[in-house]
């Protein structure tokens, strides 16, 4: 139940750091006050280390190392700001920026400035760089999927699969640049295994999967994150006690999430917790 924690000593950018055994380099960097960009990592999911934006240089390692997936080792020497690291992070951000719409991945804009990423340099007047080009899929009243924005971080697949939900309604299909998140034969979501828990949306870093309410408000120009408040409360639909974060704007609930670091939900909800709030508001109650 409890184990004695063994400490591991390492240096990050020349600074001595001591963290518990089993800690990832990523978390060690956080604890050392060195923020690391990441897209595919989330505290409630198994690292897939696919995005490679969190890579660091580890002495003795030929290639760069994904900090999210690699555990610290004693006497490890980690560089997070070496020329190689800066180059790879910049390139990964450029690659993504040149292929998909990152406009709703708010953290990334800052990182792209930080690393000087210039996604436009891949375009030539006569030979534009190939981009992912997809129409939003609107197949029901709860979700939209806009794979123009998908960075293929695998988070939604993990949340739908054995990191939380075990529904496996979506998976990565195809290969390479043509790989997409998809149901079987791209069947519409209501005809798939999807149970609308919204956990894919909860973990999506770019808005490629969105609550339809948010999508509609964004489309109408009514989505104003700066004016939103978040209140943590408890779901009313069964006795498990899931924490809900109610995102409110103009005294209305506009979105529901759950804290990823809470022991009850680990950030995941069911369809009732995610969408069942609507009766609280007009037209039901006003």
């Amino acid at each position: 139940m409890t184990t004695t924690e063994v400490s591991v000593n390492l240096t990050i950018d020349g600074q001595a750091v001591s963290v518990p055994e089993g800690t990832s380099i990523h978390m060690a960097c956080e604890s050392a006050g060195t923020p690391t960009p990441t897209l595919c990592w989330a505290e409630n999911l198994t690292p897939v280390n696919a995005c490679r934006v969190c890579v660091v240089e580890v002495e003795g390692s030929r290639a760069l190392v994904p900090s999210c997936a690699r555990a610290v080792e004693d006497q490890m020497v980690v560089q997070t700001d070496s020329p190689r690291v800066r180059h790879s992070r910049k390139m990964v951000l450029e690659f993504l920026g040149s292929s998909v719409d990152l406009s709703q991945a708010t953290d990334l804009a800052e990182w792209m400035r930080h690393y000087g990423a210039d996604p436009d340099r891949y375009d030539q007047p006569d030979l534009p760089a190939e981009r992912i080009s997809e129409e939003p899929k609107i197949q029901d009243d709860l979700y939209i999927r806009d794979y123009d924005k998908c960075v293929l971080c695998y988070k939604c697949v993990e949340a739908c699969g054995d990191d939380a939900q075990y529904t496996f309604a979506i998976a990565v299909s195809g290969r390479g640049f043509d790989a997409r998140i998809s149901t079987e034969f791209d069947t519409v979501l209501p005809d798939s295994a999807c149970v609308y828990c919204g956990n894919c949306i909860g973990v999506c870093p770019t808005g490629a999967i969105q609550f339809k309410t948010e999508f509609d408000m964004r489309s109408a120009g009514e989505w104003r994150p700066d004016e939103q408040e978040v209140t943590t409360t408890v779901c009313s639909f069964c006795g498990v006690g899931c924490n809900l974060e109610l995102h409110t704007q103009d005294d209305q609930i506009v979105k529901v999430t759950s804290p990823a670091d809470h022991s009850v939900t680990h950030g995941h909800l069911c369809i009732k917790g995610r969408f069942g709030w609507q009766y609280v508001q007009p037209p039901t109650r006003r």
């Binding site: 696919a50 030979l127 640049f177 790989a179």
Partner: peptide, 25 residues
């Protein structure tokens, strides 16, 4: 390489495409 990249990681998934585009150029 563009065709055979599995697509899992960004450097290879996009890098092989950008490399191919350059060769085509």
């Amino acid at each position: 390489f563009r065709n055979e990249s599995c697509g899992q990681c960004v450097p290879c998934r996009v890098g092989t495409v950008r490399q191919h585009e350059t060769m085509v150029q």
